[in-house]
Design a protein around this nucleic acid. Structure first.
Lengths: 347, 347
DNA sequence: GTGAAAGCGCTAACAG
DNA sequence: CTGTTAGCGCTTTCAC
């Protein structure tokens, strides 16, 4: 029923091996027979069986995309859709397919990764998130399996190729920006504290504050989840402070959204009563009310570079692919203004 | 280097076929040898080569997820992340993997679908969107390839299994809801008009209006894109009306977000000056400012049922899988209030 | 430049 | 209950 390489060979009066060579565009085949064979392939509407091919040549032309566990609130983050866009653009062009790897919890994800790799379903892996003590990264490293990380590695930073922004610098910039706008009491709200991106942005924030002679209390640093309850938790904690900060550095637009909404329940208006600056410039940052002042981290490019990196790594195993830092920039919109409140905090 | 079924067989003193049977948990193998073989598999850390297996038994245990072209603004819609969550939950449990199929434009998507299917990389397809004159759906239909559609088919509705909400009824409900709240002049804003979901919701809106003796001008029906510019375009068109509507039915939360934000640029506040009710109850509907009154269409369940459907279809080709209508409900939040404006429109 | 034949790692009759 | 034997559809030496 299914038409195979043999059918093509027979009809074109050549050997199967010749057809195979035509498929892979082997230069040792004459243009004449190439044309002849291609014509027959068209007539028969032939499409190669990719499993057979993968089995024979030990290559799948597929790459595995590892996402955080589907039950995590972060799974919904538009960040992933946008990285995947970037990945797709490049991988499609290079004729690579994407395998989607996730699970309901961390263990399931890990098991799926192992099964997929050992099952020889993919030639390489793109890890779409980075967190502390991640077993997957260790597995990949130990087994010398080609992979690239989107984000900063928790350890072995010199042995792992990664694509990331300079989140530390970005967070410093952002904090400096607030300080330049007259803010002195600034809080920090981040996502899960085990996420590397949270940690890096926190350090940038802290260093900027310190270098500017500003103090940060422990209660002004908050970790929470990407839900309304998460936003509520953060806001409640802020409300308990003797004085409300005049500005907040928020590590993610989704988080900012929730905080703004909950604040307005309390009749605290952004940016009039409090300024917010967040990260990622997700697609809806411009759709928010008010539109978010946010750090554009070039998510698309992050994905695109990751794809480029893993594919060349696969195709040139001896090549020495380097990690890449993607630039960022602050996009000023409507959540951030000069501090009008008189502040008694002195350096 | 790679350890195969033969290695396991040798070490366990059985034939390769026996090992194969143990893997597939064939009941005709004694518990004793099963244990023995499994022990050896563990010791050798054996994992089957899935390509070889797929080649031999003509089944991949993979399903293809077809997404809209990555360049479409709709690609970012959190809808997809949530359906995929639903799909994942079920497919993981059933030990199916997911292949990610998309492209930069419609043709690319179609080519990728064909290559993937003919290349025997997947056993079935879940189509994650439904639009007019979709070639992919025709291809799938003509080739009798197992697939299920999330959304309503454009044609051949009796030959295609689909998972959808009753979007027509939902839109009627929503419009009735606004009318019951005193609104008389109501506008409609939808996404791309070629999307079936847009069409179905529009019909529901129109019928409700008509049945309530309310008229709708052509200019009060607007199609636009999921961006701020899209929102701006819609708002501008509304501002040109002799009188601003007191309420809007919006087919998607993302759209609603943009409209609310642009309206507030014009000092038109939601819900004070205009009520909005939208669809999907996306993850950030509750995070918006104000939180969106939205129709919860149970996206997760949509995905879950789709997975269930396609997998049983694959495993029982003679079974008669039926289409499924997933329930919806209006979630009242903060974008919708009673019409306070005096209206002269009479029925 | 092209063909013959072996083999990738697994499953599926068929036999016993 | 288990082993033997042919493939699945392709690629890849090795000849010529």
């Amino acid at each position: 029923m299914t038409i195979t390489i043999k059918d093509v060979a027979k009809k074109a009066n050549v050997a199967p091996s010749t057809v195979s060579r035509v498929i892979s565009n082997n230069p040792r085949i004459s243009e004449k027979t190439k044309r002849k064979v291609r014509k027959v392939m068209d007539e028969l509407n032939y499409h190669p069986n990719l499993n057979a091919r993968s089995l024979a040549n030990r290559s799948t032309k597929s790459i595995g995309l590892v996402l955080p566990p589907a039950l995590d609130t972060s799974f919904h983050n538009p960040f992933f859709a946008e990285v995947i866009r970037g990945v797709t653009a490049y991988s499609n062009q290079k004729d690579y397919s994407l395998y989607f790897i996730t699970g309901n919890n961390e263990d399931e994800v890990e098991q799926t990764v192992i099964k997929t790799i050992r099952g020889r379903r993919v030639d390489g892996i793109i890890l779409l998130y980075s967190k502390e003590n991640d077993k997957i990264i260790d597995y990949l490293n130990e087994n010398n399996f080609p992979f690239v990380l989107v984000g900063k590695p928790y350890h072995s930073i010199d042995d792992i190729t990664y694509i990331d922004n300079d989140n530390y610098a970005a967070a410093r910039d952002v904090t400096n920006y607030l300080i330049e706008h007259g803010h002195r009491q600034i809080a920090f709200v981040g996502g899960e504290s085990s996420l590397l991106v949270t940690q890096n942005r926190l350090r940038g924030f802290q260093d900027s504050m310190q270098l500017n002679g500003l103090s940060v209390n422990e209660e002004e640093i908050i970790f929470t989840s990407f839900t309304r309850d998460g936003g509520r938790k953060a806001v409640n904690q802020l409300l308990e402070l003797k004085e409300l900060p005049t500005a907040i550095v928020v590590t993610d637009d989704v988080l900012a959204l929730g905080i703004i909404s909950v604040l307005s329940e309390h009749n605290i208006s952004v940016p009039k009563n409090i300024s917010i600056i967040s990260f990622n410039n997700a697609i809806f940052a411009e759709l928010a009310n008010p539109p978010l002042t946010s750090v554009d981290i070039n998510i698309y490019q992050l994905g695109n570079e990751a794809a480029k990196n893993i594919i060349t790594k696969i195709e040139e195993p001896d090549g020495t692919e380097k990690s890449i830092i993607v630039p960022y920039k602050i996009v000023v919109r409507g959540t951030c203004v000069k501090n009008e409140r008189l502040t008694l905090v002195s350096s």
